[in-house]
Design a protein around this nucleic acid. Structure first.
Lengths: 216, 216
DNA sequence: CTATAATAGATATAATAATATCGATAAAAA
DNA sequence: TTTTTATCGATATTATTATATCTATTATAG
């Protein structure tokens, strides 16, 4: 009987990957070919052993003693793992300041995400193109989502409207929601959610600050 | 010899607190007086036992059998724990779309954060007031920060400029930096940092999506 | 060519976080 | 008033995550 090793990646491991990718690309730009876990740990303030374990989980190569891992392979392995290799279309709902900030963010393509449509209720901007993305009326939401087979939705509307939009998206082929509205959404189990929660971030920040202020 | 119990709160516990606060305020608005860990766990999709432990760590009250905790006390205990009770002044550097989105966000006061100053290099907006916050030229950064005793800085500038701003802030009384620029900052140990990392968020989201798509 | 040192990889251990269990208690029901 | 039951609080257990140790390997220095 065959046995397949099942590897499960912890949330923490996943969250560290983008940081690895950043330093690896930096090193690659400096024309460095190999890097050790020690070196990466040093650059990111992570224990080398942790880096070693994380990288060992996702890379396809054997690390070489005294040299470490080949950077180019490491990069492509992590990109594959994170899904940056195959571009995914996304739409954005709510094109106010926050929505525009995200639209003008140049980095998405590096992360395999391509925002191809915007939706808003403001007649002033409907039909216009902002940062290369056309803004459509909300009435077209379901139809366009399905016709274009879009799986990722970015929600940037005021919190009062977020839930009703989720309910509408739930009837479409959307399978991931990146929620920037400060509210706990009710989302069916066939849709992944990531909340960008300002309150949580601030809680962590002020807590850290409290620790630091206590010290001295 | 006296012994003081040292409680250390895990990052996870801290991060769950804002969610507890949200549902507690909701319940309070419904004029409910007591709530059990079970009920909160149900509302937030968390195991009741985890909620019980988290709340037990921060609350000052004895929970009552069959009733649970008194909501009003729980709220004020969590608010105190998170530092929402004493307002903290903050400044924002970079008032483009993202900066404006944060400025127009009405929720900060609920989190004990008061953005009282903005800084930018754009002469078009320097001297103007946006959402009640006056925009100052970068040249005044250190002086105003120190004179007003501001401890929190929100960085919303393009990533190329983020590090030099951190270096300038390090010479002031700033003790916490909320970084929205997509870059690993080098920050002295006497300053707390919280990175708002789009790449990390997307990594988590697309990974969850991958799991969901695999299922069926 | 040989010795050395830095590294991966595997495995073991420790630390941390989540979950389960159980007795005491008090509200609610009988 | 008595019984029942939901809950807390404390403690124990389990699961997960991070760290340490040890061996084999190989680039590098001598």
């Amino acid at each position: 009987m065959e046995s397949k090793k099942i590897i499960s990646y912890s949330l923490n491991t996943i969250q560290r990957m983008p940081a690895y990718l950043r330093v690896l690309n930096q090193l690659k730009d400096e024309n460095i070919e190999y890097v050790s876990s020690n070196k990466i740990g040093e650059l990111l303030n992570l224990k080398p052993i942790l880096v070693k374990k994380d990288l060992g989980l996702v890379t396809s190569q054997q690390g070489k003693p005294r040299l470490g891992f080949k950077i180019s392979i490491l990069i492509s392995d992590i990109e594959t793992f994170l899904g940056y290799d195959n571009s995914k279309d996304a739409l954005i709902i709510g094109v106010g300041h926050l929505g525009r900030a995200l639209l003008s963010y140049p980095g998405f393509k590096n992360y395999g995400v391509n925002i191809c449509l915007g939706f808003d209720i403001d007649n002033q901007i409907i039909g216009k193109t902002i940062d290369g993305v056309t803004i459509m009326p909300m009435s077209k939401l379901e139809d366009l989502t399905n016709r274009l087979h879009i799986h990722i939705a970015i929600i940037c509307v005021p919190k009062e409207f977020a839930q009703e939009i989720v309910d509408r998206l739930a009837t479409t082929c959307i399978r991931a929601i990146w929620n920037w509205a400060p509210i706990d959404l009710n989302v069916p189990s066939y849709i992944a959610v990531k909340n960008e929660d300002i309150a949580t971030s601030l809680a962590v920040l002020t807590n850290k600050m409290k620790e630091i202020m206590k010290r001295k």
